[in-house]
Write a protein that binds this DNA or RNA. Structure first.
Lengths: 182, 182
DNA sequence: ATAAACATGTAACATGTTACATGATTAT
DNA sequence: ATAATCATGTAACATGTTACATGTTTAT
């Protein structure tokens, strides 16, 4: 049975404690979002699929008249999570529009500087947000290790932008004619 | 008129020189692939759309009986590319399955080490490939700047994995109980 | 001869986002 | 009262991948 990586995000989250779909979304937004996002529609759809596959069990826990389903791992679910953890990670993707713009900047050399400045601001803002989470003691254990990665990675990217800006030729000139050999 | 970022990859590529769809795919695979990938189906579909929108013009250039279309930027196409370059970059995404596995490693603590080792190997291999491209003088100008980013970024990630491995508690113990506050 | 590379496309599928739709509870 | 938050879903759309389909030219 093939599961999407997003399914494993859900299995991993409920391995900590039983959660509702809403809880999962909040926790994803406050943690894995920076290296693995998920929307409500995806979460609720996966939740139903995992239920049907017997990897999760739902317990209705209404608060007054407001319905709520608490999802918990079944034994099969815990086994599936462990098997996934023990397989080699496959997906590593980056989509960085700023890098793309810098790559093609020869079509508008003045854009290189503003693109790099925007990228630097982006990484700084994200780094500060993640540092705030560290200071607030939001994460512990492996989650804290990954949070540390996030902070350092964003700071590295920010400082790279600073270095690149310093090395950029002033006056809008081209850093040698640009091209990639096919 | 809203264009996808992949459309701008195509506009950017043909801004260097007229190319066929096949050329574009080869060049993407040898360059932007690491921060912006594109498949043949996407490229040919976008090519038709850009043609229809008047941003590209196709020139049939068959080699004997083998058909081939050379695509070049129109004035509108060059304008669209420049306008895009001058707008703020928006998309910055990472999908890192290794980080996800590390994040949930408390469900199988022995997996943390093997996940980190796999991630380290991945970054090293990619860094070496990109360094090979640098040595081969594959890129110049802005493309070379971006290639430098790729190399340094992969090396940074590799060295982070080494540090994390060194700090990982031996014997499969948990680095404090893990959790993220909602 | 044969394989690799050149060249263009379609169809089916998978994944993921945004907008829409609904309704309850809690805080101001 | 009213807004924010909790809570669950559907529908339409956008994006992107893989497999399939076809045929030519060049290198071995």
């Amino acid at each position: 049975m093939e599961l999407s990586a997003t399914a494993y995000v859900i299995l991993g989250m409920v391995s900590w404690r039983p959660m509702s779909g809403y809880d999962i979304k909040q926790t994803v937004d406050g943690s894995t979002r920076f290296f693995w996002a998920a929307s409500y529609s995806q979460i609720y759809a996966e939740l139903h699929r995992l239920e049907q596959a017997g990897l999760l069990a739902a317990e209705p826990q209404p608060t007054g008249g407001r319905r709520r389903n608490l999802h918990r791992l079944t034994d099969d679910g815990r086994r599936a999570l462990r098997e996934w953890l023990e397989r080699e990670p496959e997906t590593f993707e980056m989509r960085d529009e700023a890098l793309l713009k810098l790559f093609f900047a020869s079509a508008s050399p003045e854009s290189a500087r503003t693109t790099l400045e925007a990228k630097r601001r982006h990484h700084r803002a994200l780094a500060e947000r993640l540092e705030g989470m560290q200071r607030a003691g939001k994460a512990s254990g492996y989650a804290a290790i990954v949070l540390g990665y996030g902070v350092e990675c964003q700071r590295w990217m920010e400082s790279w932008c600073e270095r690149a800006l310093a090395e950029l030729p002033t006056g809008g000139g081209d850093p040698a004619s640009d091209e990639v050999a096919a």
